[in-house]
Amino acid sequence: MPGDDDIALDEKRMHGDKRGETVVYVAGGMGLTRVEVAGDQVGRFELPLRDEVRDVAGRDGRLLVATDDDVLVGTGEGFEPTGFGPAAVVGLAPGAAGTGPRPLAAAPDGEVATLRGDEWEPVGTVDDPRAIDGDLLAAGDGVYRVDAEGLDRIREGAATDAAAAGPYAACPDGLYELPDRRLRGGEHTAVAADTGGGRAHAVAGGGLFTRRESGWERADAPTDEPVVDVAYGESVYAVTATGTLLVRADPEQTPDGRGGWRSRALGVREVRRLAVP
């Protein structure tokens, strides 16, 4: 039986609501969860992949999934293997003019490759790959920029996450604007930023922080569960380690015109990442 949020989404379709529907993907130990969101309403969700998923990346309508067996590409009708082998992290970098995003992947042993046509081409090796965003790769030995020529280390020292639109890096000793301007002290585990909306968020101690003109402030997210990742689409999306999806919509995107945060438990666990294609 559909829940209240499912009904709300159906009513929007029936009555011609013009708020766009966004699909959010959550990666974790139970698999890949696909969630439909409209404005601040979290609707139907399902598990199209039920094997453990290490990472997921989305960009310009494309979806890339890292598993213990391979890197998969979302096709709209399912998932196609690429022949990469076991993957730790994946990402989608901007492609050349007139082309789509450029798939990137890193294996657990640190080998990094880019997909050209149907073939993966090695571009270098890092120590302990942890996250890819755009053309930035966060690893245990630094932050790298990945290009056609290989890897260029732009910051030394361990990094947990990176946001190409900042550019920012989340590190064990702080949040940095790359290469080395420290914005906040303390251990940071995730960071996200977008170019179009000027939004940026970071995670420290499981708490969610948002960038303001006055600096980085704690977001008023409606949960005490530790947040693990943030992504952007029509709204701001965050997910907790225990599988609660958080959505922050602007007032014009919500039925009551108030905006703010909504949340819904997805019933999944061991959550690692989320992505919006």
Score class of each variant (00 low, 15 high):
72 L>K: 06
133 D>F: 01
43 G>D: 14
63 L>D: 12
87 A>F: 00
162 A>P: 05
156 E>L: 02
159 A>F: 02
144 Y>L: 07
86 P>M: 05
116 R>H: 09
56 V>I: 08
117 G>V: 06
108 P>V: 11
164 A>W: 10
60 D>R: 08
153 R>T: 10
126 V>H: 01
133 D>C: 01
39 G>Q: 12
154 I>R: 06
146 V>H: 08
66 A>E: 11
79 F>N: 09
51 D>E: 15
45 F>P: 01
87 A>I: 00
137 L>S: 09
130 R>T: 00
95 G>F: 14
84 F>D: 04
42 V>L: 14
49 L>A: 03
62 R>G: 06
97 A>C: 07
62 R>K: 14
148 A>F: 13
69 D>R: 15
75 T>V: 08
79 F>L: 12
157 G>M: 05
138 A>Q: 05
83 G>L: 07
121 E>C: 03
76 G>E: 08
91 G>S: 02
119 E>P: 00
39 G>L: 04
50 R>V: 01
44 R>D: 11
152 D>P: 01
44 R>Y: 13
144 Y>C: 05
84 F>W: 07
94 P>V: 11
55 D>C: 08
142 G>Q: 09
54 R>C: 06
123 V>D: 02
69 D>N: 10
111 E>C: 04
163 A>Y: 13
132 I>C: 03
142 G>H: 10
56 V>H: 07
69 D>L: 11
80 E>T: 13
138 A>K: 05
69 D>V: 10
55 D>F: 05
138 A>N: 06
71 V>S: 09
108 P>N: 06
96 A>N: 11
59 R>T: 01
168 Y>L: 15
91 G>F: 00
97 A>S: 15
126 V>E: 00
117 G>P: 02
51 D>N: 03
75 T>S: 10
94 P>W: 14
104 L>D: 12
53 V>S: 03
70 D>P: 04
161 D>M: 04
165 A>P: 07
122 P>I: 12
157 G>A: 11
119 E>S: 11
73 V>I: 15
52 E>F: 02
85 G>W: 09
